[in-house]
Write a protein that binds this DNA or RNA. Structure first.
Lengths: 297, 297
DNA sequence: TCGCTACTATACATAAACGTATAGGTATAT
DNA sequence: ATATACCTATACGTTTATGTATAGTAGCGA
């Protein structure tokens, strides 16, 4: 009531919450344990109740502390963005840009797509956040996102770069030791690799696919697409993968290529606040250019 | 590059930017002019360039400073939200809730709709922000919004509470001294009150209205709906107003009530982060309940 | 059981941040 | 012209915040 809470307290609060102890938070922030302790104390007697219970193994957040974390976290994202934008020079394209994509795109597609960019603008640093959450950009966890759906938020600049086709596939080794299926029905004779949890995204996109998908169909289940791909590559069975990835890997063979009509739009998205910063624009443009080749319409 | 920018600096930066001078910012933050000056200095030699040019009339922000303002501003909104949520008590519904609505709803409708709430929960404090921006909630400028369109952001909890019908109307005094129009065509004989700038919102909602709207049609133009209403009440002519408001004001008479088929959905919206805070929930529920009566389907 | 390594809490000296006071400058009004 | 009301910049003493050092406690592995 008396005075406003100092913003440094939010920062310390978040650090302790994330690191789990005053000492660890001190290491992470470059401060010291007593200082962090004092900050937490100050914050606590500001709000009037306990935010952490002290223990020998660290500070355990109370329920209310957890419920406040997201605000401090967003502040931290904004502070980072502020710093990065402030430090990105106007003449000469440089700075750190944070990308977020699905795991599979981050591992299989982006490195190649970004190599040109690195050549042209060696001073740009890229941070890659693998995640499927649609809200990373709004929370400022990332600056630019590559996503398989159209973003809904009006605060975002979005560009559609192409179509991502999916297909069944297996490793060459698997094909050589098994009889390749020629119809969808024959798939049931094979060990199948697929998802575990049915997400909204999967539900939406498998609805009008022609045949029913169900997690019980799969012999190997994994929610991570890179894990699925690793299983396919190991020759354990047949799975679904982006055609673009299959074609670039001589060890993978597409199967029943025309049987599955699953095409996803590929979008590159950026927060509109970053439009005027040349580094972000350069990365955005490079992604649009290169992903357009990877995912032709 | 060496150390992170202290979060207090962002706060001071924002204050100076908003207040226009070190001294004013000092007054606003409860700090002092030398301290603010030092903070700005520190921030500047952190980023490596000048953020303000010092003058006798205060500090004038450079272009880059302006481009950084939004991040500090959002941080400030989050800090405020943190504080308010932290201080809102769990047992006993209290705390400060910030509402945003259009000016006309804020002035004509909300006070009555909130009176019940105030009776039941005298400890809740309401701050009212009059604005038409759809993004106030995302920027954390407000906690709950009453809007005439469906919010697009998935991070928001939205509830449709009813339909807002619009109608032509005039003051009783005007009707008594003029011949009331009986057809749309006769409207042209009368002084009309309407908008000045054609916003997206107006364009969308007047498209399939039957007759062309154009700002040149209006003899009195104002973008603010409360101003339009004031002009109508003053008996200057015929304008458009919410039927709910017309019916509650015995001085206003609806005209050609069936000629204009313009119905807007009324939505109450809240950031999902606030769902668990009882004060916000109470206000949200009260708004849904009371606006449902004001705007029946 | 002993030693090692976590951790928090406290004490104390120091360095950093701060506020007060003041100088100096520039408008605007009297 | 002179007074007033702004503003920034600088100097200086003081408070405040911080880091170092240490004590005390719990857990873990040899």
């Amino acid at each position: 009531m008396k005075k406003r809470i100092g913003w440094e307290l939010y920062r310390s609060f978040l650090a302790v919450l994330q690191e789990g102890s005053l000492s660890a938070a001190a290491r992470a922030t470059g401060s010291t344990q007593p200082t962090l302790g004092r900050h937490i104390d100050e914050l606590e007697n500001h709000v009037g109740y306990s935010l952490f219970i002290r223990s020998q193994s660290g500070l355990i957040p109370t329920e209310r502390a957890v419920s406040l974390e997201k605000f401090a976290l967003e502040m931290s994202h904004l502070a980072q963005t502020f710093e990065r934008i402030a430090l990105s020079n106007e003449d000469g394209i440089n700075g750190t840009v944070r990308l977020t994509t699905s795991d599979i795109v981050g591992v299989e597609v982006l490195p190649a797509a970004l190599s040109d960019l690195q050549k042209d603008n060696p001073k740009i640093e890229i941070e890659l956040v693998l995640s499927d959450m649609p809200q990373d950009l709004l929370n400022r966890e990332a600056d630019i996102a590559v996503r398989m759906f159209r973003p809904k938020q009006s605060q975002l600049i979005a560009r559609r770069v192409g179509t991502c086709k999916l297909s069944f596939c297996a490793s060459k080794q698997y094909i050589e030791t098994h009889v390749a299926p020629t119809t969808v029905e024959e798939l049931r004779q094979h060990p199948l690799i697929g998802y575990d949890k049915e997400t909204d995204f999967i539900r939406r996109n498998t609805r009008d696919l022609g045949f029913d998908f169900d997690r019980n169909l799969f012999n190997y289940r994994a929610d991570s697409n890179i894990v699925q791909l690793a299983l396919i590559r190991a020759g354990l069975g047949i799975g679904i993968c982006q055609l673009a990835i299959i074609e670039r890997d001589s060890d993978l063979m597409p199967l029943l290529e025309d049987s599955i009509k699953l095409e996803l739009d590929v979008w590159v998205t950026m927060h509109e606040d970053l439009r005027n910063s040349p580094a972000y624009k350069a990365v955005f443009d490079a992604l649009v250019l290169n992903l357009d080749k990877v995912y032709p319409d």
